[in-house]
Design a protein around this nucleic acid. Structure first.
Lengths: 251, 251
DNA sequence: AACGATTCCGTACGGCGTTCGCTACTCCGC
DNA sequence: GCGGAGTAGCGAACGCCGTACGGAATCGTT
């Protein structure tokens, strides 16, 4: 008995198709959907085509499923996004600290890990503002605990550690989200960073013309290698914050 | 000759309404639309009903206009949002610094201004990730220049000031966006902060049960007045960053 | 063999951003 | 006074979107 796909439309009028032409395909022969699969495919779609390409219909299609089938495993698009974000948070590694001397380097490394994970999924920036509570996602919990441990190893007591965590995390989120947004709009324009900058140069110069400090700053910063500059800027700012935190710890 | 509104539908079949019943209302008697008006009304709508309530159709209706009329003054919804955000940035005041001793207090005040402006328009959090370039909005330019001036008064040279600006701004954006997102999802749930926290307590405790540090931290923080706590947390983190920046300046 | 539970999905609804082409109006040069 | 150019406003339509609902297929249990 044939099991070929034969996408008939038996639903429109079941009596039209005779018993013989009806597919009679076992639905469970292909492994069906799962929440993990959906989340993974959503991330793939987001990475490939950005936030505005994520729709339940497209996602369903990529999974060889109908759009509404997803709702069996995920109650909402919003809920799906929370799952997706927590999954990404799971990629962030927090280095273990053996001795107190290593603390600072470990914090820097952790910050850089977080930054590069976010920049690896730049659509996250568009989505952070809509998530009141990802705090309870399993990976976010793990991440929080690990960072608290890191600060503990650095000699902070628990409350100080909580403070330090909030401060650093806000910094990371703010700067990485800004960078991610920038990269997204670059990608949309189809140019690379240098092209955009040179193309925009005259407009930018005109815009900042009335502002002396910005003009001077712009003049002083004609260095190349923008990508590296962004990274070292991040490190420098993070270093400042770590300085401040260490000063606070000593009290 | 009557000018009463008489909202007939002359469009469906123009010949149906005779010359006498047709409105013949001078379109320009009411001042028509302007970009500023549109932006102002969009902010009012966003403040009242949040980001998902902003649609071109609803905005048009609020302005007694058709949805598509807006496109004469604004080329895009995205462009509208950029305008709206820059307008909000215009609310942020940067205090002038007379003597170098006042610098630190002024920076703290500026940070608090920014935070409360953002929390006054919490929908901004949902929108920051989509804006590659608000850097060139007039209010953002003014804000940047003023903050550079603030750092200059504090004894930073221009490059250091640029660094400090980026660092502080990222922190402010990150923490305020997180708070704003939290407040938005609170508002959506219809509860106030304390209700939500007590309602969520058991679930949260269960979630953090496997994590010793979070458990202890949660136990130590049973203080009330959550809103004030958030603000003083902000101040504390900002203070840390200022410490770090001052240390860097002395080199 | 019968039956509830679970999974899948076609259909449909209301809403969205935006394009297109038409109308109605103002303004400028004659 | 008048005609033509330019512009603001808008109704209709297109192709998307999220998702509620009800029906069909399948599975696990009895």
């Amino acid at each position: 008995m044939s099991r070929a796909a034969q996408p008939t439309k038996p639903s429109s009028d079941p009596s039209t198709g005779s018993v013989w032409t009806r597919p009679q395909r076992s639905r469970r022969e292909q492994p069906a959907l799962s929440r993990d699969q959906i989340v993974a495919e959503a991330i793939a779609l987001l990475d490939a085509d950005g936030i505005e390409a994520l729709s339940m219909r497209k996602l369903g299609t990529r999974l060889n499923a109908g759009a509404t089938s997803l709702y069996t495993h995920v109650s909402n698009k919003d809920e799906l996004i929370e799952l997706v974000v927590d999954q990404v948070y799971g990629e962030i590694e927090v280095p273990k600290v053996a001795s107190r001397a290593e603390w600072r380097a470990a914090a820097l490394e952790c910050g850089n890990n977080a930054r590069s994970v976010i920049l690896g999924h730049p659509w996250i920036a568009s989505v952070l503002g809509e998530m009141g509570m990802s705090y309870l996602g399993p990976n976010m919990l793990r991440l929080t605990e690990d960072m608290l441990e890191l600060f503990e190893s650095g000699g902070f007591d628990l409350v100080q550690g909580g403070m330090a965590l909030k401060t650093i995390w806000s910094y990371i989120l703010g700067i990485a989200a800004t960078e991610a947004a920038w990269m997204t709009s670059l990608a949309r324009s189809g140019q690379n960073e240098d092209e955009w900058l040179t193309g925009m140069a005259s407009i930018a110069e005109q815009a900042i013309a009335p502002y002396p400090r910005m003009r001077r700053l712009h003049a002083e910063q004609t260095a190349g290698a923008v990508g590296e500059t962004r990274r070292s800027n991040f490190d420098e700012g993070l270093g400042c914050i770590l300085d401040g935190l260490e000063a606070q710890r000593r009290r």
